[in-house]
Design a protein around this nucleic acid. Structure first.
Lengths: 341, 341
DNA sequence: TGGCATTACGAAAACGTTTTTGAAAATCTT
DNA sequence: AAGATTTTCAAAAACGTTTTCGTAATGCCA
């Protein structure tokens, strides 16, 4: 077996409490003994058992990343991975233990957020993937354990939210399209009742209005954020010649942009020569498509990092629960043609 | 606070030991009391503290997924995510606790695999991302804790390996190209001293030899598995007209295939009309490129699932350490043109 | 050198479980 | 109906830490 704190204590001729104090840089211990103990510990290759530590300690250093729907959804691999990277980065830099938990709508019903924290001795969590109808909305609100949700608006005394200004970002994206000379723009829209959809819609409309443009109903193509639906919707749109004069497709996600491009190519059109297309999200796949898609990067890795940061501060009482809005970045690539007006 | 086992015991008028027996379906307890206890537990919304459980239990149910280089490399997002999904899937189905740990070459030096297991009360781990020169090669060999590595050959009494038959798979891929009438094939090669490179090389050569073809040195383009290198290498290759008559590029990874296609398009050539290209790995990004890339799917999610499965069996003494070779699948898409011979 | 803070440490409780031990109660045997 | 089993459970030890509490040792001052 590996050495325990007992072994170190015995070898150093001190009590276990003293070893604990030495290992954790506590005050009431002399420099001499601390050093001796550390030496012995090193010699024995002693590593504290983190499980025991977690069980006994009053100052928790365990946070979690909770992913809802991770096993069900297959679309947003990048999102979750980049989020993880951000969270783990912060945890490593600050010497925190971080664990990952996969849940879904069903397990949310069976076990409250607070219970999950209690089960794992977790001080708080960053939560991603919540759907509007998920039981956790209520669970988090009632929780005494702090948490930080990503891109979803949950109320509650101990819940923060990290997001982007999707309205402003989509406005900016739309403005870019307009600045490139596009006046007849079709909108490839996400799920009707999703929060993100209405935010992005708002951004699109505000940019158009500011420029004296309008968004007629015929130029809106609805989907559930699925590539195939975008592809089918755009194909139908072209067939029906619903949008004569349309020069650009403004898509609410990168996947929708990919589907749109697929349909356009399928109909024999070229992108961006015949039609311009923009996406939203900043998935890395947009760098590998043809053409590379102009999009808005949500900087999800930073989001993960900042979410973990905020969570930590909430746990330590440094910052109160709050909403954090991170900057986005317009990524101009090759899917938009500049029109001569 | 949430209810503890003590609270349940008190409420049910029994000892804590009895509650434990009831919760874990142990034999020596009467059906009546078990039921009563379960009822009380439900009423109090009792959830056992898994940390305490892990600390005290002699029958560990904790496994881990260890990712090396996760924060450094940015390339293989899909790989790691799909691997995770596979592992978590198995863990959930078998009611195991699974934790994820991010390490790198440096932390490997500081802490042995066995120490890491001990720290977290882990019974064993699935390990991904090891480089040939990593300290863990030795660490795993000496470990008494079982582990399963992915795609990397480590010896050791308690270490298994889950992989594909990369030689056969690459042979198959090469044969497919030949079957489509390609005789002059350039090879876009990975890092010279990587194990996977030599395996794939072996597969390519064997298929060519079998068909009376050869692989002259001038038709090999070396890279370090980076897209940009493939792009630059192929561009130079075309410029120098090193491979007149070449009709196809056989790439050792999907990223290399993407780089190759980029270079070909950059030189004004069309894929697959002018040149055919195939990749290897089955990254999901290959479904979104133009054209969609013919590749070999390593089925990494299954690999994760089976790795966790094997690990579990090793822990339970059901299966000994062993090498597991999983099937691959040739994914024929749109990047190869059939030649008339 | 005696008295008083202060410092340094040992002893033991605590964290929430599982597991072992042993004994009372129930059941079976003859 | 008495002994032998078996069943059921309470009590306590164990897991490896941290933290609290108390006290012995040290330092300081006069």
């Amino acid at each position: 077996m590996t050495a325990t704190i007992q072994d170190v204590a015995k070898a150093a001729g001190v009590s276990v409490g003293t070893v604990s104090r030495a290992m954790n840089n506590y005050p009431d211990i002399s420099a001499k003994t601390r050093e001796r103990i550390l030496e012995v510990a090193k010699e024995l290759q002693y590593r504290p058992n983190l499980v025991a530590k977690s069980l006994s300690s009053k100052h928790p250093r365990n946070i979690a990343l909770i992913l809802s729907g991770f096993l069900e959804d297959v679309m947003f691999n990048d999102f979750e991975t980049m989020l993880m990277k951000g969270c783990y980065q912060f945890a490593i830099e600050h010497d925190l233990e971080i664990s990952m938990h996969v849940i879904n709508t069903k397990t949310q019903e069976e076990k409250s957020y607070e219970q999950l924290c209690y089960e794992h001795n977790i001080a708080g969590a960053v939560i991603f993937g919540l759907k509007n109808t998920d039981p956790y909305f209520k669970s988090l609100e009632e929780s005494r354990k702090p948490c930080v949700t990503i891109d979803v608006e949950v109320s509650g005394e101990n819940v923060s939210n990290v997001t982007n200004d999707h309205v402003a970002a989509f406005d900016e994206l739309t403005q870019y399209l307009i600045d490139q000379g596009h006046q007849n723009i079709a909108l490839v829209c996400g799920r009707k009742n999703a929060a993100v959809t209405s935010q992005r819609m708002e951004g699109a409309v505000s940019a158009m209005r500011r420029n004296g443009l309008s968004l007629p109903k015929e130029l809106i193509i609805y989907t559930n954020f699925l590539k195939e639906e975008a592809s089918a919707g755009v194909a139908k749109f072209l067939e029906e010649k619903a949008g004569d004069g349309v020069t650009a497709f403004l898509c609410m996600s990168d996947m929708l942009a990919i589907g749109t491009i697929e349909a356009l190519k399928g109909a024999g059109a070229r992108v961006p020569e015949d039609y311009s297309v923009v996406g939203y999200d900043g998935l890395y796949v947009t760098e590998y498509t043809d053409p590379k898609i102009t999009t808005v990067d949500q900087n999800i890795k930073d989001k993960g990092y900042e979410a973990a940061h905020l969570l930590y501060d909430m746990i330590e009482g440094i910052r109160p629960a709050q909403d954090l809005i991170l900057p986005h970045k317009l990524e101009i690539r090759d899917s938009v043609k500049k029109l001569n007006v």
